[in-house]
């Protein structure tokens, strides 16, 4: 599954906010065709890494390469055009537009019609619209929300809103889909369905990179996991390797003192 050349690679990327070093010479590579997860305690800098990749922030130093081209300096919409689509931790849908229109937004960067082409409704403009509509339909059907296409986004249930956001990202025909906590706020059944959706996306040839808190989801679907704490990468590997890494256990469960206390407590109960 892992190939020699990664689709996305970050090398020695740093970003400061005032005195805070949010991301500290961070390295990461996302293999083509994989599901790669980034985990870590709250405030570890995961979302900052996301925002650095998607062009919302600019790194203070370091390099970000996506399929052999440098991403640094690109504006967010140019990053999407280059082939990286994203979703947000707190859903950001176009609430007053229909689901169909929401997903159609993803196709915007794949169309070219300008002001005059739109007013004159030229042939190429019409052809583009037909293509964009069928692509939108495909994405809505894949995510199982085709029947909700004419519903306003704000009327959807939480699970469907998550799906809609993924559909919108998929509509830009990305090479890399980045998901910021896709399972946040979902119940067990919904997150099972989500895992299925993410697997299907991976199987269709799109690389997936996600941040997630739900360990069941992370360990269930990831091919590769990176762990972050205080802006640094502390561990990396397959889900099994990461789970047994002492550094990870320490970051999540605290240092050995507590472990000792727990043992003592256990003994006293006995």
């Amino acid at each position: 599954m892992t190939q020699e050349t990664p689709l996305l690679s970050l090398s020695a990327v740093s970003r400061n906010f005032g005195g805070l070093r949010a991301v500290d010479s961070f390295d990461l590579s996302v293999a083509k065709g994989s599901i790669t997860s980034l985990i870590g305690p709250n405030g570890a800098g995961k979302t900052t890494v996301f925002n650095l990749i998607t062009g919302i922030y600019r790194p203070d130093s370091g390099k970000i390469t996506f399929s052999d081209s440098a991403l640094i300096g690109m504006l967010p919409h140019q990053v999407v055009e280059a082939g990286i689509a994203r979703t947000f931790q707190t859903l950001r849908l176009f609430e007053n537009l229909t689901c169909f229109e929401n997903v159609l937004a993803g196709q915007h960067c794949r169309c070219r019609a300008g002001l005059f082409a739109c007013i004159l409704n030229t042939r190429s403009c019409q052809a583009e619209e037909v293509r964009a509509h069928s692509e939108t339909e495909r994405c809505l059907r894949n995510l199982g929300i085709w029947h909700l296409r004419d519903e306003l986004a704000r009327n959807l249930s939480y699970g469907d809103r998550r799906r809609l956001e993924i559909a919108r990202a998929m509509a830009s025909r990305p090479k890399l889909l980045t998901l910021d906590e896709p399972a946040g706020g979902l119940n067990e059944r919904e997150s099972d369905e989500l895992m299925e959706v993410i697997r299907e996306i991976r199987d269709s040839g799109i690389t997936v990179f996600l941040i997630e808190h739900d360990m069941r989801v992370v360990m269930g679907i990831s091919d590769h996991v990176a762990v972050m704490e205080y802006g640094r990468k502390i561990s990396e590997g397959t889900p099994d390797e990461v789970q047994s890494d002492p550094a990870v256990i320490e970051a999540y469960l605290g240092i050995d003192d507590e472990e000792d206390e727990r043992k003592e407590a256990g003994e006293s109960v006995q």
Binding site: R92, L93, F94, N96, A105
Partner: peptide
């Protein structure tokens, strides 16, 4: 509707 989401969806 949402300038940040629009930008992140590929709209200039």
């Amino acid at each position: 509707e949402d300038p940040i989401a629009a930008e992140a969806t590929g709209i200039n």
